[in-house]
Amino acid sequence: MSLIERASDKLKKNETNHPVLSKPPLKVRTDSDLSILPNNMSSPKVEQREEVNSNPILGLANRKNFGKRTTKKIEIDLENLRRKGIVTFDHSKSEVAEQFRLIKRPLLANAFNPDSGIKNGNLIMVTSSLSGEGKSFCSINLAMSIAMEMDHRVLLVDADVARPSIPASLGYSPEEPGLLDLLRDPQWKMSDVMMKTNVAKLTLIPAGKRHAHATELLASQSMHTILAELAHRYHDRVVIFDSPPLLLTSEARVLAGQMGQIVLVVEAERTTQQTVKEALRQIETCDVINLIYNKARVHGSGGYGYYGYGYY
């Protein structure tokens, strides 16, 4: 017998003694099966988790939900705010509280009077010509004052995306997700960036992570959609945007074109008339512009006040 014939005969004998079997179906262990496993055997849970993550559809879902969270709540140090001259519920009879009562009343009338003819009147932007004039201080005071209303709630949006100052005042991290994250990623929802506070009717939206194209994001269709939702989703809500200074950034001018009302803060004895005129030219497309003459010295008290409020 030749060498090839002997090899062929050997292969036939192996197939007879060891037939090829089909692969048995995968058996799924039940709880009763697991109860009889020896102590030194590992549980199959890790393997099951790896199989789930390897699924391309489930893996995509996991990536979409990564980093998302429910609405967060922060505790504002109200006593610290009071020491800084900001309106609080426990000191609602202070001079500053009375001044902001006068400031908010026409704003609320414009926002909720159906005969006012103001589109999106509940969207209010607080800005200034230059930095340091007190716009964020006025934004927080206005928000706190409106939160005392019986019939309205307030959402304070930190739109000063380049140099946010509200986090330091209200005590939350400037790294919190916020407005720019909502604009940049369509998978974010409004509830993902909202933060409730220990002031019952006050909610916050931080500025979010800085972005090189913040101006384009604020001018985008996504921003228009967000503003429409903010303006109409809750009939009793006032939305206050703490904006960048008008003459230092382009973001403020873009935002101003989408607001129902604008409050321009002017620092007494510092901001020149020419500077104010230039700032007003930047926002002349808005129908309702209000001015707060801030840091005006109160005669006989040595303190400062918020006088000269009115329409432009």
Rank of each mutant, 00 (worst) to 15 (best):
F100Q: 01
H18W: 14
D160K: 01
G300C: 11
L142N: 09
V157C: 04
S136T: 14
P206W: 02
I292E: 05
L130P: 08
R105S: 15
P164Q: 08
E51L: 10
E216V: 00
Q187I: 15
S8C: 06
I4A: 13
M148L: 07
R69F: 05
L183C: 00
S243K: 09
A231N: 10
Q282E: 15
K104C: 13
K196Y: 13
T215D: 07
Q187D: 14
V288D: 04
A159S: 10
H224Y: 10
G132S: 02
S220D: 00
S92N: 08
F241D: 06
K68L: 11
K10A: 12
N40P: 02
M41H: 10
R6I: 02
V157K: 06
M150V: 14
P25Q: 12
S173R: 05
K45M: 11
A143S: 06
K104T: 11
M190T: 10
P25E: 15
C286F: 02
R153Q: 13
H235E: 14
D181A: 13
V157E: 02
L107E: 07
A268L: 01
P44N: 01
R184W: 08
G67E: 04
K73H: 07
E133I: 11
K295A: 02
S250R: 06
F89L: 07
V238T: 07
L247E: 10
V298D: 08
G208L: 01
G171I: 01
S169N: 11
M125L: 08
L280D: 06
G132R: 09
P186N: 11
P244V: 05
R29E: 14
N141F: 13
H152Y: 08
L11V: 09
L108C: 12
S42W: 00
S42N: 12
K23T: 07
L248I: 07
N14I: 15
M125Y: 00
S35C: 05
Q282S: 14
N198R: 01
